[in-house]
Design a protein around this nucleic acid. Structure first.
Length: 589
DNA sequence: GCGTCCAAAA
């Protein structure tokens, strides 16, 4: 029960006295601000007279608390009560449309569009025009409608430009976004920090450090260097463009930092250099910043990359202590971490205890099962996921196919490959074809794999041939192996692995002349090959080494552990594959 | 008393 007290009515002595409805609106907004949604609704329900402003406050309040459906409900109730929406209402409710279920968003937006034309707010309020453009930019299949609306706005403001740039960028057309960004300068449109950060984001999404640096320069020239969100997005851009030095340099030069700045750098280094992301993480804590769920998501992912179980477990403990363990993204990261550290059971425990899951949770769990050879479990999980109403995407199909491939469930995998287009309406891309080639190849069905490559609707790239090449090697198919190797060499003449394989095929059939040629070619590019690296975690310390690494093998702890491992491998029937060995060891110094 | 756009997970 909420009542207006004397104190509420008395808080405004300077300016002219407010009406009761104005005061109630004030109160409603402040209830929403502190998250007391129900109090706001109770107060609203008890009001005897509600005007447009009050109704609009209810709509925006619900939007600010992510209650888009409820905001839409308030709007339709308002119409039923015969209250005419103004420009404020229209722009607000258009924002709510974006948050509705994707099947309703566009039709609701169009409905409001019609209303806006009828009441004359469309074309007379820049807020309405911009919000409308945003709905079309986010919900339509193409940018055509949004573009037409934009072109019809006579006096565009900074939000108009940003909305258009964002529309293009978020649907993956970063170049179009950047063209609009440039057009904005040419037409001397109003600049805002928002447009700069989305332009930076566009550069990041195409991985173009060159364009990114140009936008960075523009940021400095226009005095947005003091804007923290803009600078954070530039740090993010440098990381995504794999410019680690530039990212760190900028980070160090920034006089003002917030948690997002740290999180951005940590997330960036998670992919660039996982070990380094830990160092940044501990410096963040040392400098007194409090890590949040985004921070932990990145460092847990770093643990997964490095496969350092102890570290991951410690972080997990910390996450539980801080009460962050019901965060969706973080739980997904933990599933992935445990699976990659070899603890599928622990990953599964997290998965089944999650109060709510999304597509990523299921995919991570399936990848985990697949990587450990539990193909059947992965397939069951897929069926369960579809049954629970989650629509599969391309990546989850990659997970199923790869799980089937590793568990030898070839026909099962092929069935899902067919269902993918015929039932789930997901069109396979080159990566999916790669998975199917791998599935067939691993099972030794090389002819079918080859036919699939020949008949697929894409031009085969190098990686798909490499996958088949591996299968030829594993199933000892020298003739097809030679053919496939020549395809790989056509596309990527510098790939040392191809020569190793080819020369070993020649050696196996005693063709020493061709062997010599391939070895010679290979030697010419030796320095380009990166050595295979192994990792081992002993007593909470990670050691990494390459073949013949003397410093590591002189370490007793490691050599003992490795000997034990080798004994164990032999016990379970492992026979070393000498075919993949480089045959001339004498020059392997 | 009410409004539109930016920056974070497989």
């Amino acid at each position: 029960m909420v009542t207006l007290t004397h104190a509420h009515l008395n808080n405004n002595q300077q300016s002219p006295p407010k009406t009761l409805s104005a005061l109630s609106t004030d109160l409603i907004s402040s209830y929403f601000n502190k998250g007391s949604i129900e109090d706001a609704h109770t107060l609203f329900d008890e009001m005897s007279h509600r005007d447009v402003v009050t109704w609009t406050a209810m709509i925006t309040g619900n939007i600010s608390c992510n209650r888009h459906n409820r905001a839409w409900d308030m709007f339709s109730q308002m119409l039923k009560h015969g209250v005419r929406p103004n420009a404020f209402t229209v722009s607000a409710v258009l924002k709510a449309c974006k948050g509705l279920h994707y099947l309703n968003a566009l039709s609701c937006g169009k409905l409001v569009h019609g209303l806006a034309i009828k009441n004359g707010t469309r074309g007379s309020s820049i807020y309405v025009d911009n919000a409308l453009m945003d709905v079309y930019a986010t919900c339509c299949d193409t940018m055509l409608d949004a573009r037409t609306l934009f072109d019809n706005i006579v006096i565009k403001n900074a939000v108009s430009w940003t909305t258009l740039i964002t529309g293009y960028t978020h649907r993956g057309d970063a170049y179009a976004g950047l063209r609009v960004f440039r057009q904005m300068f040419l037409e001397e449109g109003e600049l805002s920090p928002f447009s700069f950060s989305i332009a930076v984001r566009a550069c990041a999404s195409i991985g173009s450090g060159i364009l990114g640096k140009q936008v960075h320069a523009a940021v400095i020239n226009h005095g947005f260097e003091s804007n923290l969100p803009v600078m954070n997005s530039i740090v993010d851009m440098y990381c995504r463009c794999r410019l680690a030095y530039e990212a760190k340099q900028l980070f160090c030069e920034m006089t003002h930092k917030d948690t997002i700045t740290w999180n951005t750098l940590i997330a960036g280094f998670e992919t660039l250099d996982s070990k380094e992301s830990f160092c940044i993480f501990s410096r963040m804590v040392f400098e007194g910043y409090s890590p949040n769920c985004f921070t932990f998501t990145s460092v847990v992912a770093a643990c997964a990359n490095l496969a350092v179980l102890h570290c991951g477990q410690q972080l997990h403990g910390e996450i539980v202590c801080r009460g962050l363990d019901n965060n969706l993204a973080l739980s997904n990261a933990l599933i992935d971490m445990y699976a990659k550290c070899g603890k599928v059971a622990d990953a599964h425990k997290i998965f089944i205890e999650m109060p709510c899951t999304n597509l990523v949770s299921w995919t991570s769990m399936m990848i985990g099962f697949g990587a450990h050879g539990h193909g059947k479990e992965a397939v069951e999980l897929f069926n369960e996921m579809v049954g629970s109403g989650i629509k599969p995407d391309k990546i989850v199909f990659m997970a199923v196919l790869s799980a089937c491939s590793h568990a030898g469930l070839v026909d099962e995998g092929l069935r899902y490959f067919r269902l993918m287009t015929s039932y789930y309406n997901v069109s396979p891309d080159r990566d999916i074809y790669g998975c199917v080639v791998d599935l067939l190849g691993r099972a030794g069905r090389l002819k079918e794999a080859f036919q699939l490559i020949e008949n697929m609707p894409f031009k085969p790239d190098e990686s798909i041939w490499v996958s088949l090449l591996g299968a030829c090697k594993a199933h000892k198919e020298p003739s097809m192996g030679k053919f496939v190797a020549s395809r790989v060499l056509d596309m990527k003449p510098n790939r040392v692995g191809t020569y190793v394989l080819l020369s070993n095929i020649f050696a196996a059939e005693g063709n020493w002349a061709d062997f010599a040629i391939s070895r010679k070619l290979m030697r010419g590019m030796r320095n380009k090959k990166e050595a295979g690296r192994s990792w081992i975690e002993l007593k909470s310390q990670v050691y990494s080494f390459i073949v013949g690494d003397k410093s590591v093998f002189s370490n007793e702890l490691i050599s003992e552990a490795l000997e034990l491992l080798i004994m164990h491998m032999k016990d379970v029937g492992y026979v070393p594959d000498l075919d993949s060995f480089v045959h001339d060891l004498e020059d392997e110094t």
